[in-house]
Amino acid sequence: MSTTRTLAVVSAGLGRPSSTRLLADRLAGAAADALRAEHGADVVIEPVELRDHAHAMVDATLTGFPSGDFRAAVETVTGADGLVAVTPVFNASYSGLFKTFFDVLDRGALDGTPALIGATGGTERHSLALDFAVRPLLAYLRANVVPTAVYAASADWGSGEDALGERVARAGAELAALVAGRPAPARDDPYENPVPFEDLLGSAGRAG
């Protein structure tokens, strides 16, 4: 019997469509292909476009907790078996949208979560932002980040050589291996073991 694994795909692109979302989808697809082919798992991919939650993220930083659709997005990420996180590079670092999302997560929410990081930018000169900014951020949150990070410059999309595709495949396989080697998290059903009605009555009587 195959195991179902969930991959949350966080994309901080500002446009629609965006190269950031395109890279995120390719990375998630590579990881899903490797999980199916090499580990016999069923895979569910859950995309989270931060652009859609920009205002809610600011509200969450002010109130201290997410709400509505943004809360559902946070729960998707924190409950996933693996994470793909991709940001555009602005001023040699991750975007403010990307950082704000991870700022509102509860401490420990990503402990041990296998993660694959990626970034997009105009030139290859910004590729070091992955190792000097994005990787430390996810490491601080105690995610288990795979060795291969994938940066895609504008030239990578139009190149006849598929160097980008090779990096994507390698990173996806690394994420798949970590996800497959991690025990599937227990997803408790609050209705599986209900409190007996007589116990509820007894508690109510004692309270009264």
Results as ranks from 00 to 15, higher is better:
Val150Arg: 01
Tyr140Ala: 15
Pro183Met: 07
Ser127Phe: 14
Ser127Met: 15
Tyr151Trp: 12
Gly172Glu: 00
Leu137Phe: 08
Ala184Ser: 10
Ala163His: 09
Ala133Thr: 10
Leu178Lys: 13
Ala171Met: 01
Ala173Ser: 14
His126Trp: 12
Val179Asp: 01
Gly160Ile: 09
Tyr140Cys: 12
Leu138Ser: 10
Ala171Asn: 02
Val150Ala: 00
Ala163Leu: 12
Arg167Ile: 05
Glu166Tyr: 02
Ala152Met: 05
Trp157His: 09
Trp157Thr: 06
Glu174His: 11
Pro183Val: 03
Ser154Ala: 13
Ala152Cys: 05
Ala149Arg: 02
Leu137Ile: 12
Glu166Ile: 00
Gly172Thr: 05
Ala173His: 11
Asp156His: 13
Asn144Pro: 01
Phe132Gly: 08
Ala143Gln: 05
Ser154Trp: 00
Glu166Asp: 15
Arg182Cys: 03
Gly181Ser: 08
Pro190Arg: 01
Ala171Tyr: 11
Ala186Gln: 08
Pro183Phe: 02
Asn144Ser: 14
Leu141Phe: 11
Ala139Thr: 14
Leu137Met: 15
Glu161Phe: 00
Ala133Phe: 08
Ala180Lys: 02
Asp189Thr: 04
Ala169Leu: 03
Gly158His: 09
Thr148Trp: 03
Tyr140His: 13
Tyr151Ala: 12
Leu130Cys: 07
His126Thr: 13
Val179Arg: 01
Gly172His: 03
Glu174Phe: 11
Pro136Gln: 09
Leu128Phe: 14
Tyr191Lys: 10
Ala177Thr: 13
Glu174Met: 13
Trp157Ser: 09
